[in-house]
Design a protein around this nucleic acid. Sequence first.
DNA 1: AACAGGTTCAACCGCCGACGT
DNA 2: CACGTCGGCGGTTGAACCTGT
Length: 301
Amino acid sequence: MGRAPCCSKVGLHRGPWTPREDTLLTNYIQAHGEGHWRSLPKKAGLLRCGKSCRLRWMNYLRPDIKRGNITPDEDDLIIRLHSLLGNRWSLIAGRLPGRTDNEIKNYWNTHLSKRLISQGTDPNTHKKLMGHVVQETKGRSNKKSKTKKKAEKPIRDYDRHVEPEKPKVHLPKPIRVCSFSMVRNYSFEGIKNINNIINITTCESSSQEKGDHGVDDVPWFSFKEGDHDHLANDNDNDQCQDQPYHDHDDHLVINGTSTTTTDHNSTLEKLYEEYLQLLKTEEYDHHDQVELDSFAEPLLI
DNA sequence: AACAGGTTCAACCGCCGACGT
DNA sequence: CACGTCGGCGGTTGAACCTGT
């Protein structure tokens, strides 16, 4: 597997982007579209590596990006999605319109993980910590509350456009599903639970903003009739063995296993509650553990 | 005012899988 | 099948900033 040479190449700019570089990149992408990151810097007149350009565009310059002011609803959704998906920031970001994986990752590391710890929850496992003593969250937020007057925030990239608005759960940008390990080795329960996730995360898709590829309504996992083309991404018609698809009876087929997709009524909240209930249940024995693992495994692996 | 320590977040690094040849 | 390229991802870093003393 070849390794792309990157910014270490001599002669390329590194570090913070200048307004001029931003303009050049934005103008080029507006004129020619995204992609071909490797050749983009040269064509755009930038002394940056392609990766750096892509990162700058994806995490900051994209017009649909919403920055700052993560709402409590978004907080909650991030925590729930993290409990199911782990550190799959791009997938989590895909469910939050205008949020980038980098922003969510940063937010998790600086806010949410600390908050969970302070609430006695292990941010990695989302299980209650043993022997936890609830204590005040250490950090700036508490310090701020002691401050007489809140200092004015510095003007950073972060603050250029702040649009607090109610989060809309939306369909994520299309990804290469074929490589996504969740589709492998499902148990039947796991498949049903993924359907539950699909249900909650697509319920407001009508308000979805344009994806970064300019494709609307391309689901993360679309199990609707005919949508397997999206899952196959660039594959024209052949159904990859590892990819879920529908047969003619609207049965989902994953790794040769077929099931129905009619049960789309449960919400992620319900799923999550049930999962937590199972964890808390006194009668939760080893057998249940095995079942629960098969329940959650497809979501976590 | 100066300093130390903590926090934030943009950017970089290194790895991986898909894909083309 | 092997190899190289590309796009994408998660982890990490470090400069800029904030707060308390």
